[in-house]
Nucleic acid binder design. Structure first.
Length: 487
RNA sequence: GCCCUCAUCGUCUAGGGGCCCAGGACGCUGGCCUUUCAAGCCGGUAACAGGGGUUCGAAUCCCCUUGGGGGCACCA
């Protein structure tokens, strides 16, 4: 198996899903997973893209047996370092009558296509140079035009191959044109390079996205012309954006690394991506990487394109976050908190403190990136909030202030400031004051956290600690007083 | 325009002739639990694109239509 990305951009979830399916297939059957870099488009190569590819694979722990950084017996694994191989194959094809030099200028080709389109004909090369004699060709060559090498596609006949997912697929050769093998800059096209490399790297199965299905007959023809046995092909359904079109930047977060930044766990991504185009049975949603490897086969791959469903991804990530050990969650959350908490919060954060807070947000966070927003009141000196939030229906500021005052005094006397002590104490206090627990607890929640929706009150207070709580309650009473005077 | 391909709830999917007046999950939604928010539990909503065949019997097989997707570069 191989994953053969081109460093022309950051790999998106579809690219990585393809990589992962190849990896899964290799691991399931005990095969080898090869990583090959297809950098034959010099103009479109993006700096940093290669690193992003490796980083994406590493993040999901998709290790490659051969390829950049690890080597292997069939390298080099970067196409720009294999140019002689492609030239050799191309020259052989020309020599044996399967390919020819084409001297047509890009301008001519463009004009030709424009006219074809205007006549509602399929745009394709008109084969002008196909019939050039050797003499004519060398004449042109000496005149300084650098030719490309084109494949001499059979004019008639059918090309049939078996796709492991779709079954037999047939193309009429008459609908294919004479595609370019070698570009004038000396680099091969994808068609040429991938065939030469897949053959020489002993690739047995080519699993790639469906967008390649229509160029597969060209590949089959090329294999035949070179006298090589083609690999097995399997074309994966595409992953589409919410508008049902090919995934692109327009669809928001698409590059895999963006999901890491957004606080998704790698185990979530592996599980979720596996389910995009593959399924185990009629009910299993949550699978570990080991379980996926164990049961991954082609039979369960679907043929229909899938739309990336972010809501379900978030749900799944929440499930994985909740399954984490507190220590693990703490370690994973700290970088996000340090990134996202207000600038005023001193770094580095205390790991012990985060350790106390982590369990309180574990049930509530769907992504690690939500951690800061769910817990910022634990870190800021004083939370700022609308004093009206301290109030409840049918209870005036005076009553709340009074209740908070009494609470404050009781809390001062408490020796161990923990949930076990706080809960019974505050419950009986509410009864004593003749207040509904919801009213008292609500006011205390707002006072201590600055918000109406927060983790369970007593645990929150325990984590905050006595000093912080007392100070915040005092501030709340103060706020209520000012609210009264403003009236 | 031409070629290829696909077609089950809004989305991801199970289903490969009777087990399906179609199952699971996300979402949405009703209830329970509850100091808020979550989480959890119980329930509900919602689909076989349409039309012809084949068959005792079709979501499942065949054909057509429609619709979606992809391709048609000196990009991969």
């Amino acid at each position: 198996m191989r994953y053969a990305p081109s460093p022309t951009g950051y790999p998106h979830v579809g690219n990585i899903r393809t990589a992962m399916f190849n990896w899964l297939f290799a691991r399931h059957y005990g095969g080898r997973f090869v990583l090959r870099i297809e950098d034959t488009d010099v103009a479109r190569t993006v700096p940093g893209a290669l690193e992003a590819i490796l980083e994406s694979l590493r993040w999901l722990n998709l290790d490659w047996d051969e390829g950049p950084e690890v080597g292997g017996g069939y390298g080099p694994y970067v196409q720009s370092q294999r140019l002689p191989l492609y030239h050799e194959a191309a020259e052989r094809l020309v020599r044996e009558g399967h390919a020819y030099y084409c001297f047509c200028s890009p301008e001519r080709l463009e004009q030709m296509r424009a006219e074809q389109t205007k006549r509602k004909e399929p745009p394709r090369y008109d084969r002008l140079c196909r019939c050039l004699t050797t003499d004519q060709a060398s004449d042109k060559a000496t005149s300084g035009v650098i030719p490309v090498v084109r494949f001499k596609t059979p004019l008639e006949g059918l090309t049939t191959f078996t796709d492991l997912i779709r079954g037999e697929v047939t193309f009429d050769n008459a609908t294919l044109d004479d595609f370019v093998l070698l570009k004038s800059d000396g680099y091969p096209t994808y068609h040429m390079a991938s065939i030469v490399d897949d053959h020489s790297m002993l690739i047995s199965h080519v699993m790639r996205a469906e967008e390649w299905l229509s160029s597969t007959p060209r590949h089959v023809l090329l294999y035949r012309a070179l006298g090589w046995e083609p690999p097995q092909f399997a074309h994966l359904p595409m992953i589409l954006g919410p508008d049902r079109s090919k995934l692109s930047k327009r669809h928001g977060a698409t590059s895999l690394i963006e999901y890491r930044e957004a606080g998704f766990l790698p185990e979530t991504m592996v599980n979720f991506l596996a389910l995009l185009g593959w399924s185990l049975d009629d009910k299993t949603e949550l699978l570990s990487r080991e379980e996926i490897v164990k049961s991954f086969t082609l039979e369960h791959i679907s043929k229909t394109p899938a739309i990336f469903n972010r809501e379900k991804l978030e749900w799944m990530n929440g499930v994985y976050i909740r399954s984490l050990k507190v220590e693990d969650l703490t370690n994973r959350i700290i970088p996000f908190l340090e990134r996202d908490l207000p600038p005023g919060v001193p770094r580095p954060l205390s790991r012990d403190y985060v350790l106390k807070i982590a369990p309180l947000i574990q049930e509530r966070a769907r992504t690690l990136a939500e951690a800061a927003q769910l817990s910022d009141f634990f870190f800021v000196v004083e939370p700022h909030y609308d004093p009206a939030l301290l109030l409840s229906k049918n209870t005036g500021p005076d009553d709340i202030a009074n209740a908070l005052h009494i609470t404050l005094e009781r809390l001062r006397t408490i020796e161990s400031f923990d949930t076990a002590r706080l809960e019974p104490m505050l419950r009986s206090l509410a009864a004593e004051l003749g207040m509904k627990t919801g009213v008292l607890f609500g006011a205390l929640r707002t006072a201590t956290t600055g918000r109406t929706a927060a983790p369970p009150l007593f645990q929150t207070m325990e984590a905050l600690g006595k000093d912080r709580c007392l100070r915040r309650i005092e501030a709340a009473i103060d706020l209520l007083g000012r609210l009264e005077r403003a009236k």
